[in-house]
Write a protein that binds this DNA or RNA. Structure first.
Length: 414
RNA sequence: GGACAGCUGGCCGAGUGGUCGAAGGCGCACGCCUGGAACGCGUGUAUAGGGCAACCUAUCUAGGGUUCGAAUCCCUAGCUGUCCGCCA
C-alpha cells in the first residue's frame, strides 16, 4: 500500500510516479478525494464523540450528586442519533478509500526505466556463455519424455492440464536441486523455514496478492484458505503485525514450498512442457530490513540467485524490469533469465524485488529504532524456480543421444 | 468433530457498569547509591489517527448488541488450553 499522506503532501510528484505504473489520473484523483473525505468525516465524528464522552461523564456525576439527569438525557440521546450518522459516514469513507488504495500498485523507484512491457527491460549483464552444439538441441519436453523424467499425460489424468508427474532420475534431481539451493542460501546467511502452503486472506492482503488478484489463486472454499502462489507470502507474513528490534535486522530467510497458480490469462502461452504449471516447486528468498539496508540486501539476493545459477553452470542474464513489466508490489525488480538452447532464448527463472515499505504498510511489519516504530522494507526473490532449473539443466547439458549430464555440484545430493 | 475453561500492555497479573489506557509485579531506560556490580531508592516506559501545541479520538482477541456510559453484561466468530473421538 502506498503512503496516502505522500500523495496528500506531495501530490504532483506522487501522481506522476504512479502514472509511470499506469495508474489512471482518475484513480489518483479519486484516491486523493477519498482520503480528504475520510479525514473530514473523522474529524466531525471525533469532535462530537468527545462531546458525548463528556456528557456521559457528567451523567455519572449528576447521578452521584442526586441531580436530575432528564435534560442531559435528552441532549445525549439527540447527539447519539447524529453520532451514528457520522460514524456511518466515516465507515463508508474508510471503505471507499480502502477499495481504491488496496488496488493501487507500488511507486517504482526513480531509476527504474520507463517502458510499456518487457521489450523495454534493460539487460544488466550476461553471466557464462551459452553452449554450442554440434547437433540441433532439443526442447525440454522431448528430453524429459525421452529420459522418463516427466510424465505430462498422467499429471493431467490426476488433476487437469498444466499438471505433471516427475519420476525416476527426474524426481531425484528435483530433490537434489531443492537441497542444494537451500544449503547454498543458508551459507549466504538465509535461515531456512518450512511454512504453511495454505494461508488466509489477511496474509495475501499483506503481500499484495489480494484483493486484486484473487482470480490467480486456488482457494479452499469452506476454509477461506488459499494455496500459496509463492513462499513469499508465508515468509513475509511471518512478521505480520510485529515490531522487530532494529538490531535484529536484516532478517534473511529461505524456504522451499510448492507454489500454486491458476495462470488465468496465460491461456495458450507455454502450454507445452513444464514452463508454466499450476503447481511447481520453488526455493524462495525473503528479507525484512531497515529502510537503509534494503538496497544492500537486494544486491545480495540478486547475487545469491545469480551465483546459484553459475554454480550449476547455467548461462543466464540479469535484466532490470521497466515500469510496465514491474509487478504490483515491487518498487524495483531484477529478473534472472536462464539460457534455454532448445528455445534459443533466455527465459525467466528468478525474480528479485524490493517492495520497500509497500508490503510492510499492509502487513504492519515494523521495527523499533530509537524508540520509534518504523515501517520495515521487505524483499523477495526466487532462488530458484525448481522446475525451470530442471528444464535449463536438461536443455543446456543435453548430449546428442538425448542423455543429460548432471552438474557436478549436485552429485553429492543424488 | 464433541464437551468444558480461558483470551487484559514487551511479559505475568488485578480489575464484574462511570473517576480505567487500565492497580501491582517483572522486564527495559535514565538517575542516585557503589571502586565496579548486585541489592536498594527515584523517575519514566503501549499503539494508531488528528492538531503547531494544550489536547482530542480509537484500541483490554475480533465483530455485533444492551446502556446516557462497557475491559466489566449478552450474542457470534477466531484462537489457546484440557478431556474425549479421529488421524499421518
Amino acid at each position: 500500500m502506498i503512503d496516502v499522506k505522500l500523495l496528500q503532501k506531495n501530490f504532483d510528484e506522487t501522481a506522476a510516479a504512479l502514472m509511470r505504473k499506469k495508474v489512471s489520473a482518475d484513480t489518483i484523483a479519486e484516491l486523493k478525494s477519498a482520503n480528504e473525505t475520510l479525514k473530514s468525516a473523522k474529524q466531525s465524528f471525533e469532535t462530537l464523540q468527545a462531546k458525548q464522552n463528556e456528557l456521559s461523564k457528567l451523567f455519572g456525576q449528576y447521578k452521584k450528586e442526586g441531580k436530575s439527569t432528564d435534560e442531559l438525557k435528552i441532549e445525549v440521546d439527540t447527539n447519539k442519533i447524529t453520532l451514528n450518522d457520522l460514524l456511518e459516514a466515516q465507515r463508508a469513507a474508510e471503505e471507499a478509500l480502502d477499495a481504491i488504495i488496496m488496488r493501487v500498485p507500488n511507486i517504482p523507484d526513480t531509476d527504474v526505466p520507463d517502458g510499456e512491457d518487457e521489450e523495454s527491460n534493460v539487460e544488466l549483464r550476461k553471466v557464462l556463455t551459452p553452449p554450442t552444439f554440434a547437433f540441433t538441441p532439443k526442447e525440454h519436453w522431448e528430453l524429459a519424455e525421452k529420459n522418463g523424467w516427466i510424465d505430462f499425460e498422467r499429471g493431467v489424468k490426476l488433476a487437469k492440464s498444466r499438471f505433471s508427474v516427475v519420476g525416476g532420475m527426474g524426481a531425484r534431481l528435483e530433490r537434489a536441486l531443492i537441497n542444494f539451493m537451500l544449503d547454498f542460501n543458508r551459507e549466504r546467511g538465509f535461515e531456512e523455514f518450512s511454512v504453511p502452503m495454505l494461508v488466509n486472506r489477511r496474509a495475501l492482503e499483506g503481500t499484495g496478492q489480494l484483493p486484486k488478484f484473487e482470480d490467480d489463486l486456488f482457494k479452499v472454499e469452506e476454509e477461506e484458505l488459499f494455496l500459496i502462489p509463492t513462499a513469499e507470502v508465508p515468509l513475509t507474513n511471518l512478521f505480520q503485525d510485529e515490531i522487530i528490534n532494529a538490531s535484529d535486522l536484516p532478517i534473511k530467510m529461505t524456504g522451499y514450498t510448492s507454489c500454486f497458480r491458476k495462470e488465468a490469462g496465460s491461456g495458450g502461452r507455454d502450454v507445452r512442457g513444464m514452463i508454466r504449471q499450476h503447481q511447481f516447486h520453488k526455493v524462495e528468498l525473503v528479507a525484512i530490513t531497515t529502510q537503509d539496508q534494503s538496497d544492500k540486501v537486494f544486491d545480495e539476493m540478486v547475487a545469491c540467485a545469480s551465483d546459484l545459477l553459475s554454480a550449476l553452470g547455467l548461462p543466464h542474464r540479469l535484466v532490470t524490469l521497466c515500469t510496465g513489466d514491474l509487478g504490483f508490489g515491487a518498487a524495483r525488480t531484477v529478473d534472472l533469465e536462464v539460457w534455454l538452447p532448445g528455445q534459443n532464448t533466455y527465459r525467466e527463472i528468478s525474480s528479485v524485488s524490493n517492495t520497500r515499505d509497500f508490503q510492510a504498510r499492509r502487513a504492519r511489519i515494523r521495527y523499533k529504532d530509537e524508540g520509534k516504530n518504523i515501517l520495515a522494507h521487505t524483499l523477495n526473490g526466487s532462488s530458484l524456480a525448481v522446475g525451470r532449473t530442471m528444464i535449463a539443466i536438461m536443455e543446456n547439458f543435453q548430449q546428442e543421444d538425448g542423455s543429460i549430464v548432471i552438474p557436478a555440484v549436485l552429485q553429492k545430493y543424488l
